[in-house]
Amino acid sequence: MAFLSSLVNGLSLGSIYAIIALGYTMVYGIAKMLNFAHGDVIMVGAYIAFCGAQYWGLPPVLCVLCAMAVCTVLGVTIERLAYRPLRQATSLAVLITAIGMSYLLQNLALQIWGANPKSFPTDLIAFPNLSLFSGQLKVSGVTVVTVLANLVIMVALTFFTGKTKMGKAMRCVSEDRGAAELMGINVNRTISMTFAIGSALAAIAGVLLCTAYPTLQPTTGSMPGIKAFTAAVFGGIGSIPGAMVGGLLLGIIEILSRAYISTELADAIVFAVLIVVLLVRPTGLLGKQVREKV
């Protein structure tokens, strides 16, 4: 039962990673850039939800919606102001700008909300705890909501990219930006849309993350951000199912190694698994194998 309980915890953490990883992987697939500020958008989302619940007295659903709205606007603004002018620049220049953006968000949060950790209201997601196998396995309500949210998001995104016009445009842009432009797809709008979706997902992830681990400070988003980025690479960056698989596996590996091997070394084990996977499959688990042409 202890194993099963760890597995459930891993599934919960993995779902959060997967939702964050979706943001990384979509932006990478379409804009071909590593958006290092994504982790900090999570943090902003969590703070907005915190303010909604604590200061403005909003009901939980409105808190989450408010966080999503703010993050969406934030993501699109960041893209418009900082990344769009660099569309033709080297990938390293974009990377550094993204890092600058990450510092900027962290320090703005520091100015606005202060350095002291805030304790996130865990009752924001009020869902009854489950008790399975006649009480031997307890599953918290947050875990249930997280896993369900992950499933809904996965189905919705699969539908969105497969069936809708905008989703198809996204796939086209990620395949070949030049050709997509020639076919009359508005590349800039598609990229903005990607950032909007990714950031809205980041807000959800932020709320879920902070409900499960309720300390909120300006650096809250950075480590989960890096882990989720690892998850995206693990599953094959640019691939939406890859981000799902990568996120879930990473969460499970992390929690299991925390429980059975060593708490101190859990992060090292996660990263070591990533390295082994990349050595065996250099483009990740579900990534496209690109053959090199001379």
Partner: peptide, 28 residues
């Protein structure tokens, strides 16, 4: 040895991973 077999962004993420591993191991 492992890192230089990879390309581009994958190489970047693996160096990042190694940096984190070193930090983690140093703590033990």
């Amino acid at each position: 040895i492992p890192v230089l077999r990879l390309r581009g962004d994958y190489l970047a993420i693996v160096t990042l991973a190694f940096g984190e591993i070193i930090r983690n191991v140093m703590n033990c």
